[in-house]
Amino acid sequence: MSTLLKDRISEALLLAGLDQSELARRIGVSSVAVNGWCTGATKSIKGENLLKAAMHLNVHPIWLATGKGERSPHGQGNISTEPRPIRTFEDGDPLEEDEVEVARLTLKASAGGGRLQWEIDTKGTPNRFRKGWCNRKGFDPTKLVTIMADGDSMSPAVQDCASVTINTADVNARNGNVYAIDYQGQFYIKRIFMEADGSVRISSDNPDKIRHPDWHVNKGNGDALRILGRAVQVQNDI
């Protein structure tokens, strides 16, 4: 159970494919207010803001407020829903009219410069997404890629071996969002915070800061950090 509001908000934002500024716009509050929820400066959400946040994050308001119960908005109370059929597909099946295919990628270090390069995983099955989802989020499907997370540093939102979809068109860092980054030739999925002194704090969601400490990239060393794209969707195993 996510015991802190900031952990639940961060987890829900990532799963919903939203950033802080977009959630603020939809709720009708300031970005500062949402940032306070995400950083822990504000310990609770109440009233209308709670209900609006839960609706736009597609989570249950009780879970969002307290961490108790199920995250799904349909997982509590006496509301019953009919199960929806799950359509399976095999490799090579043609795309449906309302689907797009997103390549699954691996990473390799480039020769010489030490930079990382995307490489199509020819053995992996591409992900499929609804065109409507891409349109609602404002994503260009050709700019989306899927990679596999390695390790639990971003748990609970991103678990080990989770499939993470990255929007490679979104490379301008915004405070508190999760990005795929190349730092000194190493690949990470981390949450980024812009500090007042111009440095960038690279943070893990995992509360065990002994194993997963934050680190800073000083303003003068910014060339060592390259943002590859923002994490917009994650698929974890149950």
Results as ranks from 00 to 15, higher is better:
A16H: 02
S204K: 11
S80F: 04
A103W: 01
E101V: 10
D214S: 14
D170V: 00
N135L: 03
A24P: 08
R84W: 00
L23A: 12
W133H: 07
Q233P: 07
A24R: 11
Y188P: 06
N175C: 12
D7F: 00
W63G: 01
D223M: 09
G229F: 03
S203W: 11
R128I: 09
D205M: 13
R71L: 03
N172K: 08
A231P: 07
P207F: 05
L5S: 01
N175T: 12
R130N: 10
S163C: 09
D98N: 14
H56T: 02
S44P: 08
G220Y: 14
F89G: 04
I202R: 04
P141C: 05
L13N: 01
V59K: 04
G185W: 15
N127C: 09
L18F: 09
M194K: 13
R8V: 01
S80L: 06
S155N: 06
T3C: 01
R25A: 15
V145K: 14
Y188Q: 15
A33T: 15
R8W: 01
G47T: 08
Y188R: 15
V232I: 14
S30D: 11
V217P: 02
D7M: 03
Q186N: 14
D152E: 14
Q20Y: 08
L105A: 09
Q20V: 10
P73S: 10
T81P: 00
L5F: 03
E90R: 15
V102E: 13
R174M: 12
A173K: 08
G124S: 10
S10H: 03
M154D: 05
G17Q: 09
A12K: 01
L51T: 05
L107C: 02
V102L: 12
H216S: 10
V145R: 15
D91Q: 11
K123D: 05
D150A: 11
A180Y: 06
D152W: 02
S31R: 11
